[in-house]
Design a protein around this nucleic acid. Structure first.
Ligand code: FES
Ligand code: FES
Lengths: 141, 141
DNA sequence: AGATACTTGACTATTTTAGTCGGGTTTATA
DNA sequence: TATAAACCCGACTAAAATAGTCAAGTATCT
C-alpha cells in the first residue's frame, strides 16, 4: 500500500498555502520552490483543488491561490477526494453482489478489506488542515 | 492508496488453507480453484510464505502446504511482510535526516505520514488468521 | 507592453503490478 | 517402476499506473 506523490504533494502544498495565506494569494511558484515540487505538477493538482472548491485562484501578476474554506473545515478526506487519491482495498465494485473473480459470493476476506478501508478513511476524516498547520507552528520554513 | 492483489491473495489463500488445514496438506491447485487465483501466481506467493516460515510444504503426490504456526500467532503483519506488501507513505528513507527532495529538513507533513503509517500498521498487527477464520466459521465455501 | 501567474490538454518515460511460461525435482501409488 | 500430482525456481512480459513534462494559451497588474 503506497501513498502516491500526488496525494502527498496536495496535502503538503495546502499546508504551505495555509501557513502563508494571511493576506495575499500564494503563487504556485513559491510553493514549488519552498516544497521542492515540480511547478507543472502543482498546476495539475491545484486545478483539481479549485474545481472541488478547496482553493480559489487569483489570476494575473501578484496572483496565486487562497483557501476557500477555513482550515478546520478542510479534512484530509476532502483533499484526497479532490485529487482522486482514493483508498482501494479491493478490485470489485462495492454495489455489485459478485466477487472479484466473477463468483456470485463475496470472497472470504471481503469483510476484512472493508474494515481496513474504513480504518484508513477514519484517519483521513479526522485530520484537518488546521491540525497540520498547528503541528508546524513553531517551524520557520 | 491501493492494496495490491498479491497481498490480498496471500491473506485469502491463507484463510482458505487454515480452514482446510485439519489433517492433510492443502494443494495450491485446490486453493486456486476455490478462490479463483492463478495457480502460477499462488506458487510465487507461497514460495515467499514458506521462506518466512509461515507455511511448510509437503512435496509429491498428495502434497501441499500446511500452516507452520498456530492461527492466532499469524498476524496480517507477518503475512504482508512475507510477500513484501509494505505500507509506504513516504519516498524518503526513515533513517536519513534528509527530506525526499534532498533538503536537509524533513517536509512539513512528515509527522502526518508517520502517523498514518502507524495507524495502518496497527490494524495489521492486531488481526490474526484466527480472527479471519472465525469470521467465516458458518460459511460453507 | 511586458511580466507574472493561472488554465488546459496532450504527451511520455519509468516503474509497478499481475501475472505467464518453461523447465525442473520430489514422492505417493497403481 | 512408470506415471502423475504436486512443489520449486527463475526469467520473461503485457498492461496499468505514476509522476511527471511540454506547449500554447488567457487574465491581470504595473
Ligand atoms: S475482494 Fe472482491 S470479492 Fe472480496
Ligand atoms: S515525505 Fe520525505 S521528507 Fe517528508
Amino acid at each position: 500500500m503506497k501513498l502516491t506523490s500526488k496525494g502527498r504533494y496536495a496535502v503538503m502544498a495546502l499546508v504551505d498555502l495555509a501557513r502563508f495565506n494571511n493576506i495575499n494569494p500564494v503563487s504556485l511558484r513559491d510553493i514549488s520552490l519552498r516544497q521542492g515540487i515540480s511547478l507543472d505538477y502543482l498546476e495539475q493538482i491545484f486545478s483539481k483543488l479549485r474545481k472541488k472548491e478547496i482553493v480559489q485562484s487569483v489570476r494575473g501578476t501578484q496572483g496565486g491561490y487562497i483557501l476557500n474554506k477555513k482550515t478546520n473545515e478542510i479534512k484530509l478526506t476532502n483533499i484526497f477526494e479532490a485529487v482522486d487519491e482514493k483508498v482501494k482495498t479491493v478490485q470489485c465494485k462495492k454495489e455489485s453482489k459478485k466477487s472479484c473473480n466473477g463468483k456470485t459470493v463475496k470472497c472470504l476476506t471481503h469483510n476484512l478489506w472493508d474494515e481496513l478501508e474504513n480504518h484508513i478513511n477514519n484517519f483521513f476524516d479526522e485530520k484537518s488542515l488546521e491540525d497540520l498547520v498547528k503541528d508546524n507552528s513553531e517551524r520557520r520554513i
